[in-house]
Design a protein around this nucleic acid. Structure first.
Lengths: 137, 137
DNA sequence: CAGGATCCGTTTCGATACTG
DNA sequence: CAGTATCGAAACGGATCCTG
């Protein structure tokens, strides 16, 4: 069931497939929840991501797995629970997300906690390193 | 004709209204063309942005003007021509766009020229300053 | 019960044709 | 050149169902 759009917006473009990730609000929200809020399960995303419908969430998660941005694995203790984690490729999205949030915080009203924003802006690299360490094996 | 969505995905979100900009592929393409390719007119965007339909382009331009990310002004010599320029708020999107492109270049096949990518990655600040200088009064 | 798949009414998008 | 009008296609929201 490969999506076969008639449009050719992928070609000749220095953003390319990245547009399927960045150019979709739901995908961005999932990435924010995963990378910044530390959420990891279907339920958590569904509760957090601005009332995302379950079919939409399932679709975006599937795409993120296909693109090797996240991985899924079942909890060995409780087989019902699936946990999602970012890959190295996914973690490398952090600078993009952080620049987005920094811009949004500067120009729009956001709900971002002030202390997080301060650290995020004054030393983004340290902030990124901290987030990365949460996902180390 | 304000869009009045039932969803509340704007609230309680450290991305907020920014999602209307970043979470839309066409908007991203227009911003890329404006900021990086130096395009400035409706026609140029239409020719460049992966076959964007004229109504979509008109819609996205209108939104970008509403959000004060770009301004439009008619050419005093030729009243038919409308030229678009980024505002300060719009120029501050450069770090986001650049991080996106750097990521895309690393993980996907892109059509970005190698020499541009090199400068963009080795000294992004200088690259940004250079782009900015193109839009100085 | 968690994670999804499926169905369906509604909204939004986008390709094409056309206009000031 | 810079947009609008139309209309079919796709995405979305919400409910429900399924499977382990």
């Amino acid at each position: 069931m490969k999506r076969k759009s008639r449009t050719a917006w992928r070609s000749d473009c220095p953003l390319n497939i990245a547009l399927e990730i960045f150019g979709d609000r739901w995908t961005l929200l999932v990435l924010r929840d995963l990378l910044l809020k530390g959420l990891a399960t279907f339920r958590e995303f569904q509760a957090s991501s601005e009332r995302i419908a379950s079919n939409i969430l399932a679709d975006r998660i599937k795409k993120l797995v296909e693109y090797h941005i996240i991985t899924s694995q079942r909890n060995p203790d409780d087989a019902r629970i699936v946990t999602y984690r970012p890959t190295a490729k996914g973690l490398d999205l952090l600078p993009v997300i952080i620049e987005m949030i920094a811009w949004a915080d500067r120009y729009e009203q956001t709900a971002a906690p002030a202390n997080v924003m301060r650290r995020l802006k004054t030393s983004p690299d340290a902030f990124i390193a901290e987030v990365r360490s949460r996902f180390e094996k």
